[in-house]
Design a protein around this nucleic acid. Structure first.
Lengths: 210, 210
DNA sequence: AGAAAGAATGAATAATGATTCACTGCTTAT
DNA sequence: ATAAGCAGTGAATCATTATTCATTCTTTCT
């Protein structure tokens, strides 16, 4: 038996795979799935187009993986914000702000995850993504109702409206390609846009103006 | 001068044009702009592909026209609902319901108008469409603030959130292709889905639970 | 009827982009 | 050193669609 896969090879392959994933992620962040052609991804990763197909069954599979990764990152952040101390209303506000700020910082990716049309396999992932969000917010809203900090309401529906209001506010105006060069990496503190979105959302939830 | 365009010919051309528009509209309602290939539209209209190009400079121009028509129809309905008697809050509620119900009845078209990626020429029309909505709702919200039936707020931002909340509620869950056969042409009166969306939206606007 | 002009046609072309596969070149184990 | 086998390559292929244009109808007017 003259050849047997060894640790070294496994590592090398894993690294190539990782590099492909990273480059695809970058392409998507930059121009959406549409702009992440295999040729471009391959060039960016410094491999031949054929190599992509040694690591992923098809473009759809690659995209599904990217989607899963990107999504997990976002959902985790929101889950984290929802897991802190405090009453449901405060935690929800923190989480919504987290969500909105992250989307605002990466609007193209946000648009890709929320609204860009994708192939069926990827759309499946999107459904899971939506469900994950819906469940997180829903859970928190239900807790709020339980502790009487929120009025009784259709938690699932409210959660959907929250995501929609934020998405439209960010992705609508800022989406297509007009996310002109203005880099803003220091935008950690306060954005008036985010503030007024959150204001509408919290009011939609609580029925109270702060 | 052996040939001069006559009334009869003008009519015939106008009819062909109309037929092309209708068929494109139908295709878009059915599967979005993506699915409205020139070949299919031509087949549906009973003309050759080349004929399309006698009536429209390019696919983009044709789509832009369709978009304009579809959009006008929706905006008019909302404007109409906002032009009735009553205070701003009531009129807004009627208008939102109108918007939501129409979108729910034609979710694919709604998605195409709101979120489907389209070519630049069509995207331009979309911007006008957004602006038209924003202005209508904004105006009404401002009236509400003026007559004290609404608390002071960023009218433009609220209007965006309204559109987003409704769009996500309808297009998110119901959008892609899973708008399975269930025809509902008699859905004129009350849909619980619409009710709870409107509830969230009105609360977001008014800060009051009904 | 016949000539001029436009309208309609649809097969051919062009452009884009995913996927394949025959080949080259490394790794491994003897 | 060398044979076996897998990894990498990228030009060629296939698929999909918009668009063109040489050709064939139709209409109009004398």
């Amino acid at each position: 038996m003259p050849y047997r896969e060894t640790e070294k090879m496994r590592n090398r392959k894993a690294e190539a795979r990782k590099r492909i994933i990273e480059c695809t992620y970058e392409c998507v962040s930059d121009g959406g799935f549409r702009s992440a052609q295999i040729t471009r991804v391959a060039a960016c990763a410094g491999v031949a187009t054929g190599t992509i197909y040694r690591h992923f069954e098809s473009k759809e599979h690659l995209f599904a993986e990217i989607f899963r990764i990107a999504t997990q990152r976002e959902v985790d952040k929101v889950a984290e914000a929802l897991a802190t101390e405090g009453n449901a209303v405060t935690r929800l506000e923190t989480a919504l702000r987290q969500f909105a700020e992250r989307a605002l910082r990466g609007p193209v990716m946000a648009w890709s995850l929320i609204a860009e049309p994708v192939d069926p396999k990827v759309e499946e992932e999107r459904l899971k993504f939506r469900r994950a969000y819906a469940e997180l917010f829903e859970q928190a809203i239900k807790e709020g109702i339980g502790e009487n900090s929120l009025p009784d309401q259709d938690a699932r529906q409210s959660s959907t409206c929250l995501v929609g209001a934020i998405a439209e506010s960010l992705v609508g105006p800022l989406s297509p390609a007009q996310t002109g060069g203005t880099d803003q990496t220091d935008n950690n503190d306060h954005d008036p846009l985010v503030d007024s979105i959150i204001c509408f959302c919290m009011q939609g939830l609580t029925g109270t103006r702060r």
